[in-house]
Design a protein around this nucleic acid. Structure first.
Lengths: 92, 92, 92, 92
DNA sequence: CTGCCATTTTACCGGC
DNA sequence: GCCGGTAAAATGGCAG
């Protein structure tokens, strides 16, 4: 650990497979559980897009709007301005 | 919408900014709410890694382990598929 | 093969490891060679973006422009129009 | 560009639509040319799969095999990394 | 035309 | 704090 490369055996209290191993396991299980929930939410989001699509809205465009709403007004305007500059430069 | 260009005003019920606009807004708000929850979970996961790091475990390695655990199922399937290929190749 | 599951032993002419195996191997090698070339081109593209960045252009925006140029004028205008509709509907 | 907002007119040499615009255009054209080649290779690869299919090989399985071959190097590295983890865990 | 697979884009994380 | 690489998500293309 002194060399900064180590991973297990935190604070020299125990060796892998012992108490530290149990601690590590608990961390991993907490992480995996949280990741499952996260994955479930991703599924929920997909479902909402699908439902919206069923009502005539285009998910692709909806995503763009969500993305725009996520940005601050300043950032959004700046990016749009720069894009305009590039577009004019190449004539699109 | 018969012209294939539109998306808003599903079922001819309303125009943008009207009822359809409200519907769209509701979808977007549902999505944004779910994304917030998802983001919160991502934050929780980060915290667990940070806590583990505080106890001497290296997040980088932990991520590797999580990844390996996750891939196990997929790899097993891959391996079974390959086994099938070989079985078919030899006609068993 | 009649059951639709088989892959090797095409036309019942040979068994894996034999002529068919050689044929398969040749196909795989052709594919792998082409994929290497493809990967090299991807590297070249990355380099161009990096060079442009070094001259003050933002790759992120450049990619958007490339994407716009890829679309037909009609598609591009339609998409922009629809995005405007959605944006107005939710007030972005 | 001292204000960090600009990108075009690198080194204050020109304005959009001018020299900088030409430079940008050249970058975009290089990129688009490379992408065309890349796309052509993708088409070639697809053709090889199609030809193989015509000779009784299943593209789906072939892709799996190609993928497995490709992953071998990565897996080997992964395995070595994991070995390192274990070595560190036991302090060898 | 729906679902799958590949590619591309986006977000995240550790290093400098 | 930026930047590069790495993993997740989304978009697009293709077969069935």
């Amino acid at each position: 650990m002194a060399d900064g490369t180590g991973a297990i055996e935190p604070s020299k209290k125990a060796k892998a497979g012992g108490i530290a191993g149990d601690t590590l396991k608990r961390y991993l299980e907490r992480i995996e559980r949280l990741e499952e929930e996260k994955k479930a939410l991703a599924g929920d989001i997909r479902e909402v897009y699908a439902e919206a699509k069923g009502n005539g809205f285009e998910p692709r465009i909806m995503r763009k709007v969500v993305s725009l709403r996520r940005m601050t007004a300043a950032d959004r305007e700046e990016e749009e301005a720069l894009l305009d500059v590039y577009r004019q430069a190449v004539g699109v």
